[in-house]
Write a protein that binds this DNA or RNA. Structure first.
Lengths: 339, 339
DNA sequence: CTGGGTCACTAAACCGGTTCAGTAAAGTAA
DNA sequence: TTACTTTACTGAACCGGTTTAGTGACCCAG
């Protein structure tokens, strides 16, 4: 009986609606005997409480929002986000929460989405692709919504963050290249206004300085394939060209490798290349790409947990720190060429 | 004022709650003058009707569900689905509906998700990755939910479908190879229990027969990179090996190309390869992949439209047929090698 | 002038839960 | 024994909309 309501259960069990509510939610105020009888009646009628009614009465949406502001084309090649969603889902599956997902193409659409979902659709947001000075934080504070951020922004934020323990994954890539004898190591990064773009840049720079090398070969790109291709061309055209390039993601690295090969450079003999994300396809590139493997499922898992803890008030206020990712060495990195 | 309710607006405009409701929804029963006054009051108070209350009163969720039953790892490399979601979103953005997305790793999780979302979370589902004999159709009928399917299944289905006008896109790939002189054209397909896997298989077979060629080189694979790699090895080990392989998606083609090259075959001189989907990265493969470009945004767009039409009863019962996709010729296909 | 129909609008019921004030019965301390 | 607390439960208000029955004003035909 799909159409059963709390009243049906109440009369079936010979109690009031209130008692049924208490019994179902495991709250005190009903005797053990009665509770059992109520639950039995509920099961017999096949009753599941209506989320709509529940939501109205308790002023909750029982949903969390995720708004991805990226070009849909890019999304499709982003290995992070699918795993991330799956990670969220594994947690939500065991709770009465669901994920409301929106893809916004531009900033206007993004703001519109936040407004739309804020109007009672979700109880909180998970913020990805965080900017150093992210306006969404103020926006959500204003709207009195909860949130969990991926990475902690530079500005003051009242929301718990899930972030990586340093940017060691990226540091490892640079150290790997230094160990191979490279001295001219370039970085094609994502936009520096992103926390993760910035973090990878810093890691690159710091690792080079630690090795006593100059960090002059940097191009701020945009995480897209054309961006990676273009940056690579510019780097290779330099007088004192790099012998290795670390890219901030796999897509730029893939495009970069392709461009280098088209220009007649042999990878890795003439040029070593590393990516970031460990997308499924990069092991099938020619040569297979050395890259860094984040753990998107884990990120999703932690973010969802933090969110739920925030909802039931059990959050301890501490940021979650994830272990550094792995460097996966494949064929695109090799010893520095002789000069 | 975020906390404004319909009562506030009613008293501000000096009318009853009922009048406000009628005015807001553009229903008859309020004078033009009064309607304007009510809308002005609503705007002044910054009132947006509570979706929770609306949902409870009208027994609707104002959301549509999308459950993806795939390995999260695969999802990340699937260029279709991200664009598809974006396509749905562009339509929903202008309506008061949102998308509830779930990723299910296995069939148990999938069924659980359908049950969970069916309990008042969504008003209908969009079904992707349709099976010829898809059990979800019966399930949703039983649950009295609406649905739109991507492709029409073999079994009787009361739900409108969005499907491609034939599988011409795939046919084009085979014709392209035939025109290049290939006579041994293999197909590495997806599982044949999927409508799209089956459709591509049929298209391959029919195109070969139309060209008077044997269609004996077929391997039923699984849309994954390892599956594509494995199938390719088996095809290349044959006595009368194919000189061209058409894959049912880009990921298998990418893996196949990598395997072929590792075995010493030159692509396209020794072996031509085609994919399907036109993932962002395939143009950066070495050589760039000849593939077929579906239009995921369009699919999402049409599916969402059909869904909304179903909700407001304006659906005409006709399936939507999309134009055939484009064949994008790149470097992975070339003339058949001399024997 | 009257009866019937429309129109604009109100009051109240309703959707299906949660929650709070109140009550009767049982338990406990003085 | 009385007085006070605790426990188990009920009834009703409430969340914020939609919807329906009903009312008075107005118009028109007979």
């Amino acid at each position: 009986m799909a159409g059963a309501t709390i009243s049906d259960v109440a009369s079936a069990a010979g109690v009031s609606k209130g008692a049924v509510s208490l019994a179902l939610n495991g709250q005190p105020g009903v005797g053990e005997e009665t509770r059992k009888r109520i639950l039995a009646a509920a099961k017999a009628l096949g009753w599941t409480p209506s989320l709509r009614a529940k939501g109205l009465a308790s002023a909750r949406a029982y949903a969390i929002g995720l708004i991805l502001a990226r070009d849909p084309k890019l999304l499709g090649t982003d290995p992070f986000f699918a795993g991330f969603i799956a990670g969220i889902e594994t947690v939500l599956a065991e709770h009465e929460y669901t994920l409301v997902l929106t893809v916004a193409a531009d900033e206007t659409a993004e703001r519109k989405s936040y407004r739309k979902l804020s109007a009672g659709r979700v109880d909180g947001f998970i913020l990805t692709d965080l900017l150093l000075d992210d306006p969404r934080i103020g926006l959500l504070e204003e709207l009195k919504l909860k949130a969990v951020t991926l990475n902690r922004p530079d500005i003051e934020s009242p929301f718990p963050a899930v972030s990586m323990n340093g940017t060691e994954g990226f540091t490892k890539a640079v150290e790997h290249l230094v160990a191979l004898g490279h001295t001219r190591i370039a970085h094609v990064g994502g936009p520096l206004r992103y926390v993760h773009g910035r973090g990878r840049y810093d890691a690159w720079k710091d690792a080079l300085q630690a090795a006593g090398l100059k960090s002059d070969l940097f191009i701020e790109s945009d995480f897209t394939a054309p961006g990676g291709a273009d940056s690579t061309e510019r780097l290779l055209a330099m007088d004192d060209r790099p012998t290795a390039i670390v890219y901030a993601n796999d897509l730029m690295a893939t495009a970069g490798q392709s461009v280098a090969q088209a220009r007649g450079y042999c990878v890795p003999d003439d040029l070593s290349i590393t990516g970031y994300d460990d997308a499924e396809f990069v092991r099938y590139l020619n040569p297979p790409l050395t890259t860094i493997s984040a753990d998107p499922l884990r990120w999703g898992h932690e973010a969802a947990h933090a969110m739920l803890a925030l909802f039931d008030g059990s959050h301890d206020g501490q940021d979650v720190r994830l272990p550094p990712p792995e460097l996966i060495i494949r064929g695109s990195t090799g010893p520095a060429p002789d000069r």
